[in-house]
Amino acid sequence: MIVVKELWKIYGKGERKVQALKGISVTIKDGEFVAIFGPSGSGKTTLLNCLSGIDSPTSGEIYFDDLPFHTLSEEQKTQFRARNMGFVFQFFNLIPVLTALENVLLPLKILGINHGEAKQRAVAMLEKVGLRDKIERFPSQLSGGEQQRVAIARALVHNPKVVWADEPTGNLDSETGMNVIELLESMKKELGTTLVVVTHDERIAQRANRILFMRDGQIVDVREGQKLGSI
């Protein structure tokens, strides 16, 4: 379970001060699919970055199963991320000089898993995302949807407790985007992972268990997604 208390993120100083997050408090349950929904500049990505530890909040508390994540050093946060988190980005962000397989192997290598086992798990994960026959291809040899599927495989290959996805369909056509979301959902179900997706796509948000509506750095509303008609 992820518990967030009074999370503030302030950029700049003096007149240039920008309050990106204004005292956010929220709880995300294990295995939950949460969508963070809102217009551009509302603080969605900042919230995701702070929660995942790739950005530091100005103040506030974040707990992962009672572990005070906000008190960890950068080094400890990095180690925690390596074991417990997976990421999917809008622009896929695959390493261009590594093949699909090597990209998926990367989190396992960082965890120090031996090559044989790591390869087996990476191939299996790529098979699950439907890319068994393209594992030796470089990102530039794959389509956008395929690249995002590799990114999903990379995010899930080490069985993380939580996967953060920042606009995972933002760079894909609508059909491919839906395919990607369906894949994320099915993988979440299969692996029991918590899934937090930042999006401004209604159709994606509607598939979530819960939607956190954000505006001007604050959560202005929380609704259950699957029971939602139109936002």
Partner: peptide
């Protein structure tokens, strides 16, 4: 910069 951030996000230290 972006790929560096990704590597750090997936658990590589500075």
């Amino acid at each position: 910069r972006k790929l560096t951030a990704v590597l750090k996000a997936v658990g590589m230290t500075n």
